[in-house]
Simulated assay, not measured.
Amino acid sequence: MQPRQLLPNLTFLDLYPPTADAAREVLSSLSAATPHLDPKYFYDEQGSALFDAITRTPEYYPTRTETRLLREHARTMARTLDTELTIVEPGAGGCEKARILLDQWQPRGYMPLEISRECLLDATRQLAPQYPQVQFQAVCADYSQALTVPTGHQELPRLVFFPGSTIGNFEPVARRTFLADLRQLAGDDGFLLIGADLHKSPERLHQAYNDSAGHTAAFNLNILAHLNRRLDCGFDLDAFEHQAFYNEDQQRVEMHLQCHRDQHVRIAGESLTLSAGTRVHTENSYKFSVEDFSRELVTAGFQPLSCWLDDEALFSVHLARAA
C-alpha cells in the first residue's frame, strides 16, 4: 500500500489491522486459560478521548510529570544529541508530547505510528501546517507492524520516542524483545528517548488507576465497547466491573474486568461464554527503579546517556544511544 499525500508535508499510510485478524486474535485471547485482551484495543476514537481525560485527573501523575520533564530538559537533550534527526514515535496517540520536541528540536522528519486512525489523522492534520519545515509521515498500525515500517529520511539518524511508560505494559520477556526491536528501529546511529514509571507507595498507585471521576473505569470498559463496535461481539458492559490494584509480588499495577454474570458472545464466527466470576486481564503497568531499567536498556543494545527525574522521583525519562 502506498502512502497518500494529505498535505504538502504530510503523508498517511494506512496499515490498520484487518477485522478478520483482530477477531481471531481476540477469540484466542479470551479463550485462554487466563482470559485477557491486548491493551491496543483500548484505543479507538472514544478510548483515546477517555485516556486524555485520565491524564487530566489530579490522581494520574505520569503524564503531567513526564511532560514537565520534557519541557524542562528538551534543550539539554538536544545539546546531548547534537545532530539533525527524524523522530519516530510508536503509539503516538494525539502527538501531544512530541509537540515539545518539535518546538525545541526542529527535527527534519516526524513519523507518528498509532492504531487509532481518527486520533492520528486529527493530530497530524493539525500539527503539520504548524511545522512546515518538518516532513510528517503518519502511519496507522499496531506495534508489531510499526517496527517494520520503513522510516524514510534514511540519511539522518532516527530517535525513537516512546513516552508515557507504555513500556511498563509489557511482560518482562516481551519487554526485552520489544526494547530490542526499538533498538533495531533506531538503527546503528540512532537514539531512544523513553519514559519509565518508578516504584512508589501502593496507595499512590491505587489512586492513579482508580480516579474519583471514574475515567479509568470507563476507559477499561471501553475495550469491550470498542470490540462491540468493531467486531459486533455483543458484550453487555453492565455485566462487567473495573478492577485495578497493585500486585506487590510482580511490582505492577493490574487492570481487570470482572464478569458478574454469564456472558455469551460471538467472535470470528464462534460462540464464547465467559462465566460469572471470570476476570479478563486487560493491562499491566510495571514499575521500575532507574538502575533496573537502565540495565534493561543495556541488555537491549543501548548505551544510557542521561536520565531525568522529577523532585518526588515519581517518573523517569531516559535518553540512550545505540551501542
Rank of each mutant, 00 (worst) to 15 (best):
V173A: 15
V173N: 11
R175Q: 15
A180W: 00
D181V: 00
L182M: 06
L182V: 01
Q184A: 09
Q184L: 09
L185K: 03
A186H: 01
D188F: 02
D189P: 08
G190L: 03
F191W: 15
F191D: 00
L192G: 02
L193I: 04
L193M: 07
I194H: 07
G195S: 07
A196W: 08
D197H: 06
H199G: 03
E203D: 13
L205R: 01
L205C: 04
Y209K: 06
Y209R: 06
Y209F: 13
Y209V: 05
N210E: 07
N210F: 06
S212K: 13
A213W: 04
G214W: 07
H215C: 11
A218E: 13
F219H: 04
F219R: 04
N220V: 12
N220L: 11
L221Q: 14
L221V: 06
L221M: 08
I223H: 09
L224T: 05
A225S: 09
A225P: 02
A225E: 06
A225K: 03
A225G: 07
H226L: 08
L227E: 07
R229S: 14
G234D: 06
G234W: 10
F235G: 04
F235P: 06
D238H: 14
D238F: 12
E241R: 15
E241L: 12
E241C: 13
H242K: 11
H242F: 12
H242E: 08
N247Q: 14
E248C: 10
D249K: 14
D249W: 11
Q250G: 15
Q250R: 15
Q251T: 14
Q251M: 14
R252C: 15
E254A: 10
M255Y: 09
H256D: 15
Q258D: 07
C259I: 12
C259D: 08
R261V: 05
D262E: 12
R266H: 14
R266C: 13
I267P: 09
A268I: 02
G269R: 03
S271Q: 11
T273K: 10
L274G: 01
S275Y: 07
S275F: 07
S275V: 08
S275M: 09
R279P: 00
R279E: 00
V280E: 00
V280S: 01
H281K: 11
H281R: 09
T282W: 02
T282D: 03
T282L: 02
N284I: 08
S285M: 04
Y286M: 01
K287R: 07
S289Y: 06
V290R: 00
V290W: 00
V290D: 02
E291A: 12
F293W: 03
R295A: 10
R295D: 11
E296M: 05
L297I: 01
L297P: 02
L297C: 01
L297Q: 01
V298G: 02
T299F: 07
